[in-house]
Design a protein around this nucleic acid. Structure first.
Lengths: 347, 347
DNA sequence: TATATTTGCTTTAACGTTTAAGCAAATATA
DNA sequence: TATATTTGCTTAAACGTTAAAGCAAATATA
């Protein structure tokens, strides 16, 4: 019953009594095909409901028009917004994306890359898993001549393009804000030092303390996996100190949420007793009580830039990447958890 | 410098002095190839770092080993968890997924389907956008003989497989719970009636009210887009009533969050003055104050079942779908927003 | 021992497209 | 008018794989 057979360029060719090659060229607006033929071909294509066979053209041209995207998880607002914008930019140029999640696992990330290479993607846009230290799987991508774009969680040593925010400077802004609020003992629950962005946040924190002549106390600088659970643990650790901090800057919102829960459970007043700042501006930061001051990372711009960076390589014959960083300004969103000033005018 | 040329089965064939076809069969463990040859082929394949060209085999076999997934948005916990589980099941069988987002837009959903068909996916697993009423684009998928699996937001008229929870029964359970808590005027902020799942929730709510001899008041039944903003608006509307409800059941967690904010802003005690129940068990429901009672939808199971349902069709020659519903039991997670009983023993 | 079956491969063609090369007709140039 | 160039197509091959058909050698069956 159903017309199962799909229309191909051959069908169009035989209707018009021209060659399949001519049809292919007409559909691609080749200069050597007359306007008359182009029009006729496109009309027939429409009538027969022709859908190009992507696989065939990909095989022949060596380009799959597919881009792989690797993120730790899609269910954070940051990553889902980055993805949405990558997709928007790439779709316009005829590319589709394949999204994969590493779940912060090194092994899964390696598998994802194998999968993407197997699928013959034309490029990979990735943000690295927490666990990742060994970079061999990414080197494999590079050695195959496939453009690799990193964002958020990157690594200088790979010598590829990177799009992210200025983590060092973000820390400085956070510390300045807390100092302005009158805080004198500022703790930092940071991410793993081996991850560049978290290392930069730590450096920014340390340097800012020096700048404002605040004590740099080892007890106040903790390394964390930045999950909600670990945020709870590290906050508890800070509360157990003889000399408690009066402000805590957490390098991730989920961990900040854990910290907030512990503070609430201990009836500690935020921001007056302890001020709290997170990182990432996840939607829940404004939902919880008190709402959490956090850093907005311009995820939409990061996504767009990553996609555009990839597209630039599609125009080149040989891929020759080098470390090219595109650093965006982050934005501190001040909320109740760190805003002590009772009297404020709406500026 | 680099060995850019990829190894193909021909390379393996020439090393072993056998035909390419034999190599192909050996790699697929064809019964007509000797164990000795298979071993040799696999060893050479490994040595030469052979990666099968997915496009070529897809073109030849007519199977792309790609499955399209369409969701309204990836950034809800429900959908990201469903996706994660679809991926897990399908990857094991050599399938990859292409995730697309409709952003609740009918137009975007149509575009997504075109994109997926163009990419020659072997199947589509989808949850429909809010806006979608016309089903022609889904009919197109069916008429191409591509298996279509719907989950969460489905539609009987399409006569395809569907995986979801028992929305009607969930409403009944919610109303029973609120009645048990002593509520007498229960309002419902529901989704759009034209979406089957929301219609079922509404029916369940109405029938439960009848069952418990509670007033079925038109003022208390509102239709909403279920965004946070609309949740705020509809809650305000309920507060403006002369005769306010003492419980509000919201058909989506984001809208429930909006409602919660309005209630907090108006210093209305939850659950004593007004009890609140959401739907979806998004992570923030337990983060906010008070935590929101909600319905857990077993997203992991839904994802797995959807993937397995698709896989069943891959074994069949001709696709002949019919309405086959797989309905899971949902689970009510009772939290502070609706839990009036001060004295409770841990059962 | 003669014939049937099975084993283990080879040959060939095809999937639908693109691209290089080629060629006749139309047009431009001198 | 003779030659060069451009236009508008065609032909043929290729991308890497797989599936059908075929065939000789090895093994089983009678």
């Amino acid at each position: 019953m159903k017309t199962k057979k799909k229309t191909t360029i051959k069908d169009i060719a035989s209707v018009l009594n021209i060659s399949a090659a001519a049809v292919s060229k007409a559909l691609h607006d080749d200069a050597r095909i007359s306007e008359k033929t182009k029009k006729a071909v496109k009309q027939v294509a429409k009538n027969l409901n022709y859908q190009p066979n992507h696989l065939a053209s990909a095989l022949r041209s060596g380009k799959s028009k597919l881009v792989g995207v690797i993120v730790p998880r899609t269910n954070s607002n940051f990553f889902s917004s980055v993805i949405e914008n990558i997709e928007e930019v790439l779709n316009k140029k005829g590319y589709n994306i394949i999204i994969t999640q590493s779940n912060e696992s090194f092994k899964k990330e390696c598998d994802n890359i194998d999968t993407l290479l197997y699928t013959q993607v034309d490029g990979i846009i990735a943000s690295m898993a927490n666990e990742t230290i060994d970079l061999e799987h990414y080197e494999k991508v590079k050695s195959k001549g496939i453009p690799l774009i990193l964002f958020d969680r990157g690594e200088n040593d790979l010598n590829v393009d990177y799009i992210g925010i200025d983590d060092y400077n973000s820390s400085q802004i956070i510390v300045k804000h807390l100092v302005d609020e009158g805080c004198k003992r500022i703790a930092h629950i940071g991410g793993f030092k081996h991850t560049r962005i978290f290392n930069n946040r730590i450096r920014g924190y340390v340097d800012a303390l020096k700048k404002y002549n605040l004590p740099l106390d080892d007890e106040l600088l903790l390394e964390s996996s930045l999950t909600k659970e670990d945020g709870r643990k590290k906050m508890q650790q800070l509360l157990n100190l003889k000399n408690r901090p009066d402000a805590v800057y957490v390098a991730g919102d989920y961990a900040a949420l854990g910290a907030l829960q512990v503070l609430n459970e201990n009836n500690i007043n935020m921001p007056n007793e302890i001020a709290l700042v997170g990182f990432g501006n996840e939607p829940f930061t404004e939902m919880v009580t008190p709402s959490i001051t956090s850093v907005h990372q311009h995820s939409a711009d990061i996504g767009k830039l990553a996609a555009e960076t990839f597209l630039r390589y599609t125009k080149e014959k040989t891929i020759n990447q080098s470390l090219k960083k595109q650093i965006l300004k982050a934005e501190l969103i001040i909320r109740t958890s760190s805003n002590k000033k009772i009297l404020k005018t709406n500026v």
